[in-house]
Write a protein that binds this DNA or RNA. Structure first.
Length: 123
DNA sequence: ACCTTGACGGTTC
DNA sequence: GGAACCGCCAAGG
């Protein structure tokens, strides 16, 4: 049988796990997540993986997909897309300032702490 | 097997 | 800031 349907791909799991490490009120770029997940240069894969996040979380923990934006500091969905609105609201709920589709990376980008990473991620 | 499509990114103009 | 271009790689047709 294939209960693997919900298992997907190992890389996706690494990505979900990495995204779970992004703290409340902070954001990270697709490329940044890819690097931290040990998948340098595969930012696009992060987008795909986020499109498949398990609705009820991964290993008992929610995956804060909305904390991932592009390297230009913008929400990647088109503004007319309802996902755009959803992401913007979720971010603002965490006191992240979103102007139009733009977020100031200088202020809100997650600067991962090495010790924290080693603790949370193990691969 | 070939082509297209992305929740992308860096460089350049 | 923004647009064009090219590199990237997994999925799906």
């Amino acid at each position: 049988m294939k209960e693997i349907i919900e298992n997907h791909n190992v890389n996706h799991q690494k990505i979900w796990q990495t995204v779970q490490a992004i703290p409340y009120g902070k954001v990270a770029c697709y490329g940044q997540v890819a690097d931290l997940a040990g998948l340098p240069g595969r930012a696009r894969l992060v987008g795909k993986a986020l499109g498949n996040v398990p609705k009820n979380g991964w290993q008992g923990e929610r995956v804060p997909w909305f904390r991932v934006i592009n390297s230009q500091g913008k929400i990647s969905f088109p503004v007319e897309n309802e996902n755009f609105t959803r992401q913007k609201e979720l971010l603002q709920d965490e006191q992240v300032v979103v102007i139009g589709s733009r977020i100031r990376l200088a202020e809100f980008q997650w600067q991962p702490d090495l010790a924290e990473l080693l603790f949370k991620l193990d691969f």
